[in-house]
C-alpha cells in the first residue's frame, strides 16, 4: 500500500488521541488502534518506514506510539 496513504491514516488516528489528557495513555491507544484494525502487512510497512525514514511526515506522537507499542 502506498506509504502516503498509511501516513495520512496514521496521522488521523494520532489527531484523535491528541486531545487525550494522559499522553502516555494516548501513545498506547494509538498503537492499540493500529494493532486491532490494521493488517500485519500495513503495520509492518509503517514500522519499517519509521525505522528507515525516521517517520518523516508522521506526527511525533504517532512515531512514538509505533516505536514503543506496535505489534509487528
Amino acid at each position: 500500500m502506498q506509504t502516503e496513504t498509511l501516513i495520512k491514516m496514521a496521522n488521523q488516528i494520532g489527531d484523535f488521541f491528541e486531545a487525550e489528557p494522559n499522553q502516555t495513555q494516548a501513545q498506547q491507544d494509538i498503537a492499540n488502534h493500529l494493532n486491532r484494525f490494521w493488517t500485519l502487512d500495513m503495520r509492518s510497512q509503517l514500522a519499517a518506514y519509521v525505522k528507515e525514514k525516521s517517520g518523516a511526515g508522521l506526527h511525533q506522537q504517532v512515531i512514538s506510539a509505533i516505536s514503543a507499542h506496535l505489534k509487528v
Binding site: M1, Q2, T5, R36, F37, W38, T39, L40, M42
Partner: peptide
C-alpha cells in the same frame, strides 16, 4: 488472529 483488509484497503492493494 490478525485483522484483515477493509474494503478501501483491498481496493488500494488491488490497484497496486
Amino acid at each position: 488472529n490478525e485483522p484483515g483488509l477493509r474494503i478501501p484497503n483491498m481496493l488500494d492493494l488491488a490497484g497496486e
